[in-house]
């Protein structure tokens, strides 16, 4: 049933909405508008003259191989991180949902990484996997792997991915666990009596009932990988080596902040925004239809 509230004063609803609207306008619409405007401008190297150039920034962007490389890195990075963090979180949630001894402790510990800031998470992983100082870095080299995330792009990508996955598992775990706990126990019992073994029960009953949760997490994770992994990348690899870990959002930063090319950077951020809007719309359109019941 739809809930409707009737206000006695005409202005009251607007007054109640105002704080939220203000925050959205100041922190989203205004900067987004600024970015769009900025993306049509070219500044000279000293910042003295600014020229309005329409789509020149976009044109040069799409003829730049480095941009396509960042696009590819982002696509791979977001797919790998999303798939891995969702899978690990689901496995952990299923295990934690069983009535184990000390289940509460496991649950608490599993949630902790979420409280770690991305940049700190990046530093932690770098400490562990630094090739000459890190505990695991030294181990890997001692075991005969030629491990060096500073020089080897595959190693760098793996390290950033591991840190990003580790950090996101907690969040996904929490939602999966809540999802599992909201499935009535009698459904599982009915399926057991209906002759379904544990594996079949999971795939035919539990998993479909978790699909709304999984869908929500998919959307949130993609947004996470697109934006929130910036801190990890910045502390671990700074986008290197040779752009192997430069994602779209990192390129926005390195071109604009480090490179001083505000026009190109703004154009990149506008494209990034459009990609995320497009992806989210796509997900709601095509995937959500299959998961509602």
């Amino acid at each position: 049933m739809e809930k409707r509230t009737v206000f006695s004063h005409k202005l009251l609803p607007y007054a109640l909405l105002a704080p939220q609207l203000l925050v959205t306008i100041v922190f989203f619409y205004w900067p987004a508008g600024q970015a769009v405007y900025q993306s049509f401008l070219i500044q000279d190297a000293f910042g003295i003259s600014t020229e309005f150039v329409w789509f020149e920034n976009y044109r040069s962007l799409f003829s730049d191989p480095a941009y396509y490389s960042a696009l590819g890195v982002t696509a791979l990075f977001s797919t790998v991180v999303t798939v891995l963090s969702l899978s690990f979180a689901l496995i952990l949630a299923v295990e934690a949902d069983k009535s184990l001894k000390g289940a509460g402790i496991y649950k608490t510990l599993l949630i902790w990484p979420y409280a770690v800031a991305p940049a700190v998470a990046g530093v932690l992983w770098l400490f562990m996997f630094q090739p000459s100082l890190g505990v695991f870095g030294k181990m890997l080299n001692a075991a005969g792997f030629n491990w060096n995330p500073y020089l080897n792009s595959g190693d760098a990508f793996a390290l950033v991915t591991a840190a990003a996955v580790w950090k996101q598992i907690s969040y996904n775990f929490l939602f999966f666990l809540a999802g599992l706990q909201s499935i009535p126990k009698s459904l599982i019992e009915a399926a057991a009596i209906d002759g379904a073994g544990p594996t079949r029960r999971f795939w035919s009953i539990v998993f479909p009932m978790l699909s709304p949760t999984a869908f929500y997490l998919l959307t949130v994770n993609i947004v996470y990988v697109f934006f929130d992994t910036f801190g990890i990348i910045h502390t671990v690899t700074r986008g290197g080596p040779a752009g192997a870990t430069t994602t779209l959002v990192y390129k926005v930063f390195s071109d604009g902040q480090a490179g001083g090319d505000l026009g190109t950077s703004a154009a990149e951020s506008v494209i990034l925004m459009l990609i995320v809007i497009g992806l989210t719309a796509l997900q709601f359109r095509f995937i959500e239809r299959k998961v509602t019941y």
Binding site: S186, E189, A190, A192, I193, D194, S211
Partner: peptide, 30 residues
Amino acid sequence: IEPMHRDIAMVFQNYALYPHMSVYDNMAYG
């Protein structure tokens, strides 16, 4: 012996129907 091998069927208080399946599939599941 596991429930599935006892050759029994149970009707639950809250019905325990599988919400993501049609009536036909609910009955066909077992």
